[in-house]
């Protein structure tokens, strides 16, 4: 490996990010496109949810940026956030926010077939619907899973402390559901209660 060529490659990738940012600002309302530098050498670009699909189409057409490393989904408490991590000699992540109630977004599988597993995982773990995803079955969760989205945040208990007695939750349940199995205690060391989800 030659160190000089390496430096040149990384320089090019910084310029590439700059060009991508400019192209996105030209295509979409410029005030909605926000860039942020994140370690390690990653650029995060925030976009509205309905711009993600056209933005990825633009990345592929104009910059041949097709390697989607993965999609991270996370519940920030106020929204469901999706992060589309791309890689092309440098990291580029598209960030978007969805409402916690019935979140949905267009699938990327028509542009990048490799996105299918990542979308299925985000879908089962956070309850996000990917419109147009050809095979929306769960990827990792069991077939008889009760439908809860395990990576959703639970409402915090009023007094955070050690996890409550699991048998107590079996007795009280969360009311309402008659046949539904008792909610699992995912709160653990963070002291989340197991009141109803979503």
């Amino acid at each position: 490996m030659n160190n000089e060529t390496m430096n040149n490659e990384r320089l090019e990738s910084a310029m590439l990010v700059e060009a991508i940012l400019q192209a996105l600002r030209e295509t979409f309302p410029a005030e909605t496109v926000e860039a942020q530098a994140v370690p390690i050498g990653e650029t995060f670009i925030a976009l509205p949810a309905d711009c993600i699909h056209p933005a990825v189409r633009l990345l592929i057409k104009r910059f041949d940026l097709r390697h989607l490393s993965t999609i991270t989904g996370q519940d920030t408490g106020s929204a469901i956030e999706l992060l589309y991590h791309f890689w092309d000699g440098g990291g580029l992540t598209l960030r978007t926010s969805l409402p916690r109630e019935k979140p949905h977004i267009a699938t990327l599988t028509d542009l990048i077939p490799g996105a299918a597993f990542y979308e299925r995982e985000v879908s089962e773990m956070l309850g996000v619907t990917f419109d147009g995803l050809p095979d929306p079955r769960p990827l990792l969760l069991p077939d008889d899973w009760n439908g809860e989205a395990p990576l959703r945040q639970r409402p915090t208990a009023p007094t955070p402390g050690p996890s409550p007695n699991p048998s107590a939750s079996l007795r009280t349940g969360s009311g309402g559901g008659e046949q539904k199995p008792p909610p699992q205690n995912w709160g653990g060391l963070r002291g989340g209660g197991e009141e109803e989800t979503q």
Partner: peptide, 16 residues
């Protein structure tokens, strides 16, 4: 936040 990448024996490994 951070995106960390490494080359596992099977290829690119990503941590967010």
């Amino acid at each position: 936040e951070v995106v960390s990448r490494g080359e596992a024996p099977r290829g690119e490994l990503v941590y967010y």
